[in-house]
Amino acid sequence: MADPQFLLAAAAVLFALGLLGVIVRRNALVMLMSMELMLNGVNLSLVTFASQAGSAEAAVLVFLVFVVAAAEIAIAIPIVLALARRRGTLDAGSWTELKG
């Protein structure tokens, strides 16, 4: 079992990288991937805390997060595809219809 401190630091790095990716990149697919990265950073911290507390419920929660993430991607990818087909680009900056 690795050092929890290291695991938590890794989780924070994963989350920060994901966030940075979402903020910086404009490609919709890369943004989705970055979001997965954030999600997994959170998952890692969840598992770390679960093993520390010896709680089975937290471990189960991790599987729940996987399922939700899979469902989210299953919906998000077709949306991105539909948008890409309409404009011929994956650039998130090309959809600004709801601008104030």
Binding site: R26, T96, K99
Partner: peptide, 8 residues
């Protein structure tokens, strides 16, 4: 004005 349309 904040609502620029840019997700980022």
């Amino acid at each position: 004005r904040i609502q620029t349309g840019s997700l980022q």
